[in-house]
Amino acid sequence: MTYRKQAHYRLLKLVLLTICFFVTSAHSDIVVVVPATSPIKHLSKTQVAKIFLGKSRRFPDGTKALPLNQKEGNLERDAFYQLVSGKSPAQIKAHWSKLIFTGRGQPPKEAASNEVVKQLLINNAVNIGYIDRAAVDNSVKIVALK
């Protein structure tokens, strides 16, 4: 009996987790974040895309932008580029191949997860990143996208 109960519980947990997964991946609410202390309040999607695609080295106020990517294959990464540039993962990869192999630039450093993004923003190792809205806490600030 106990075993069956446990099995039911496990199954329920799995179903719930699966639903959660699909809900989050379907909506994957991505936000652009900066350190809580950053003066940046809002940026346009184009400005963010330019910073992450190596087309712009600075924020509109002239300070240097140090973007942090998420790892290839992370849902956040694909959703982020779709959001700011409308480009697919393959297009982003092709874009960077172009820049790398023409010696015109190197892609931003990559972080493994939302947690690492926040960690590196707090450390001031980088100054702009993107995470799932659910991972936002008071260590980072959401940038309003115009």
């Binding site: 450093k109 972080a111 493994a112 190792a125």
Partner: peptide, 13 residues
């Protein structure tokens, strides 16, 4: 540790 590992995984940092 994670931070360090994620940093060292890419040489271009």
């Amino acid at each position: 540790f994670i931070t360090a590992a994620s940093l060292s995984s890419h040489p271009a940092f």
